[in-house]
């Protein structure tokens, strides 16, 4: 297990390095000077040079990258060009909000998805299987930002049951765990849960069908186990992979929340990214993407490790 752990971590370090290099270069593939959005149009040359020096854009690229990486490792992601506030603080607050709905969405998606997938795999070929497969295909094909709009149309505009967007009366700063606030989470989380639901359902269906085809299943039945006993064995065999898929889905949702957050004006990382893009606030863009990508990379390693703990076969790969 220790060698497996070491191998995974050694493998991920260069990837993490590459990811930070990519995030750093994002600012430099952007057309135009990153300072144009803050400088007044009539800025003097001296003022431009001064700002360039403050932001460090006057140094050679490798030096800039080195300095940026050192700072980033210490939790300093620079200063937002638009607001002048530290990027790290803004990103952390937003990550918290995104995590709230992403985790809720992953749980809903996982429960529904494994239910549908299980039913489909267990009764393969029956009408239940067909229904569950249709739900899975719908889940992976639906443009989720449109689904969000439809949710708002149905539950907010027509029925008036749930608020159409935002994070509660006082914004995210005044968040409380009461119904008034939680009701703002429901529509975004359900909309978001549709993607992992489809993917989990597909995976679980294939897993269950595969496990039921293995030799130990007739052996268990021959031993005299009834359906429920067999069911327990199937769950035990399917769980590690299904959990791994769930972990990865959480990562995808964290990174992919921007569209849904835009629809629901949810003040998370997606919302922050949207602002960063339209105000051409490149340090903020860079910082948000770095944090989200690192979350995803770390989550991947964690999933691998947990999978290795649960399933010794994974360790020997």
């Amino acid at each position: 297990m220790l060698t497996y752990l070491a191998k995974r971590i050694l493998y991920v370090l260069p990837v993490a390095f590459g990811v930070s290099l990519f995030c750093f270069l994002l600012v430099h593939i952007a057309p135009g000077d990153p300072l144009t959005s803050v400088l007044p149009p009539d800025a003097s040359q001296a003022m431009q040079d001064e700002l360039r020096r403050i932001y460090g854009f006057d140094r050679p690229l490798p030096v800039q990258f080195g300095l940026w990486l050192m700072k980033a490792l210490q939790g300093d992601l620079g200063t937002s060009i638009a607001t002048g506030r530290p990027v790290a603080a803004e990103v952390w607050r937003a990550v918290g909000n995104t995590l709230l709905i992403a985790i809720l969405a992953t749980i809903i998606g996982f429960l529904l998805g494994s239910f549908f997938g299980f039913v489909a795999g267990y009764f393969r070929g029956s009408w239940l299987d067909k229904m569950a497969s249709i739900v899975a295909v719908l889940g992976v094909s639906v443009p989720h930002y449109w689904l969000g709009m439809v949710m708002v149309i149905v539950f907010s505009v027509q029925l008036g049951w749930l608020p159409p967007g935002g994070a509660g009366p006082g914004g995210s700063a005044a968040w409380k765990w009461d119904w008034e606030h939680v009701s703002y989470m429901i529509l975004p989380a359900i909309t978001m849960s549709v993607i992992p639901m489809g993917i989990v359902a597909r995976t679980v269906r294939a897993l269950v069908a595969d496990i039921l085809n293995q030799e130990f299943v007739p052996a268990l039945r021959a031993k005299g186990l009834m359906d429920f006993g067999v069911f327990k064995h199937v769950v035990k065999n399917a769980a590690p992979t299904a959990l791994a898929v769930m972990g990865l889905q959480l990562g995808y949702l964290l990174g992919g929340s921007i569209l849904i957050e835009t629809v629901f004006s949810w003040p998370g990382t997606g919302f922050l990214l949207g602002n960063a893009i339209f105000q051409r606030d490149l340090p903020l863009l860079q910082g948000t993407i770095l944090v989200l990508a690192m979350f995803f990379v770390t989550l991947n390693v964690l999933v691998d490790i947990v999978q290795g703990l649960l399933d010794p076969r994974v360790r020997r790969r």
């Binding site: 990811v19 290099l21 990519f22 057309p31 991947n300």
Partner: peptide, 23 residues
């Protein structure tokens, strides 16, 4: 390994990051 770096981004995030930076 270079491919893995790009694979380490969720696809939506990578698409938005790139087109956000490129304009």
């Amino acid at each position: 390994r270079t491919v893995d770096v790009f694979y380490a981004f969720p696809s939506v995030l990578l698409a938005i990051a790139l087109s956000g930076a490129l304009g």
